[in-house]
Amino acid sequence: MNRKYWIAVIILVGGLYACEKEVIETFVSFEKPANFPQPVYHFSTNTISKDGFELGRKLFYETLLSANNTISCGSCHIQTSAFTHHGHTVSHGILDRLGTRNSPPIMNLAWNTSFMWDGGIADLDLQSIAPITNHVEMDETMPNVLSKLRNSSQYPALFKKAFGSDEITTSDFLKALSQFMVMCVSSNSRYDSIMRNEPGKMFTTQEQQGYDIFKQKCNTCHKEPMFTDYSFRNNGISISSVNDEGRYLITQNNADKYKFKVPSLRNLSFTAPYMHDGRFFTVDAVLDHYASQVQYTPNLDPVLQQGSSPGIPLTTDERVKLIAFLQTLNDHSFLTDKRFSEQ
């Protein structure tokens, strides 16, 4: 009788324990979407964990990272705009100081081979240093940021939870931010579900025709499925008043003058304005550019010089179909995913 009683108690406790475990283990770590290539981020030196990711998210939305504690990474990378700075040609940072470029999206960064419009940063773990220390962005020093975090009431314990030590190191700080950023995967557009052959998902006739045009006229640079080949190209936009020389600033090779990184077209309905300096406010304006406004500036990309005049010829009908296809690259779930929002 006694023995049976104890067995029952053990089973009951075991059962409860198992239930509790299930609740705890809801965190889903980084997963490669089935229709995506292998990521390039070095997960071997930064294992994603729930605590690391949550710490990274808190840091991403932390205003202590700026000189006067007013702005965070999330100020210029807004989730509802696919982590870009909607409504601004060039982004404004601390004290509304203007930069020279439009903030790129925090999206699918685990596949990025370099960061920034000019590719000046090759490792995501080193990326955060640039906006934090830039005079027109957060204008803070790295030693100050770490000192503020070390003196805060919350962060030492959160770093201990995530990395096993409450001593806040440069490496742990940057890797926590990376953990949050690589988790920001956008892979649930209509295009993705169709490519994954999900039941009941297919292009409309118009979208399919647009897709065919896309493959013929855009896919060289905006390569599927990431919709960028991560290369640097001059797409023939006029040279800006600040004469931003793009990739040349990094390589200091004349052949790289006026080249910028090819941006992904994913979520393009939410990431306006377009180009490195946000000069085009609508997709229509971008297509106008490619159809009739491409200019012969130094190092204009050869793929834009194949016809009698530079650019990509597009009929009105082709434009309508192309835009219909491009709309299928929007991933609304990414914009509303609570995991990526300020908590």
Binding site: T45, D123, M142, V145, S171, F173
Partner: peptide, 11 residues
């Protein structure tokens, strides 16, 4: 970044 300590620590 974890190997950049001491005089090589960017922060």
């Amino acid at each position: 970044i974890s190997r950049r300590t001491g005089v090589l620590d960017p922060a």
